[in-house]
Amino acid sequence: MPEIIYKKPHSLSDKPFHYCPGCSHGLVHRLVTEVIDELGIADNTIAVAPVGCAVTADEYFRVDTVQAAHGRAPAVATGIKRALPDRVVFTYQGDGDLAAIGTAETVHSAARGENITIIFINNTIYGMTGRWRQPLCRVRSRRPRPTDATRTRRAIRCIFAKCSRRSTARLISRAQPLTACRI
């Protein structure tokens, strides 16, 4: 009798992904749901899916899900976690969402030490709207002085570093630019 040594996580639905070929979302969705299954927490988890290609993550994650406005997922997650402290609450955010419009929410949920998990998909672009560059985008430049993008990354990294000393928010950064940005 063949032994099953690997299968699709139960918490991942059977719906085919709509993501672009090569996009890391599919991979990360599988990883997240695999962990949810391993920890046995599907029945106790609430996901927050903000604007971005993965705003329809509820179609893939088989857990209760709340859609959020662009950048506001950590605030929405804070509301949920404060309401239901014994649930597992996580957000699934892209970089434009987390590090541009949502910088304040990201930093402050960390500074307050909200007991939520933020899954951060940094592919350095706003995918949904046609691959516009965003603040964490790596930009090749011949100029010796730091570019805006580098300054932004340094500022955000500095703030996260300060916050993480006091907080329990986890940031998992998938810094894999699939599209190199050129001037």
């Binding site: 709340v66 959020a68 506001r72 605030a75 997650a77 509301g79 949920i80 309401a83 930093v107």
Partner: peptide, 18 residues
């Protein structure tokens, strides 16, 4: 909250949670 925007989104989350 860090802003009124964050506050209303927290209300949204809590209300969604019931």
């Amino acid at each position: 909250a860090e802003s009124e925007i964050a506050a209303i989104n927290m209300v949204y989350g809590a209300a969604a949670a019931g």
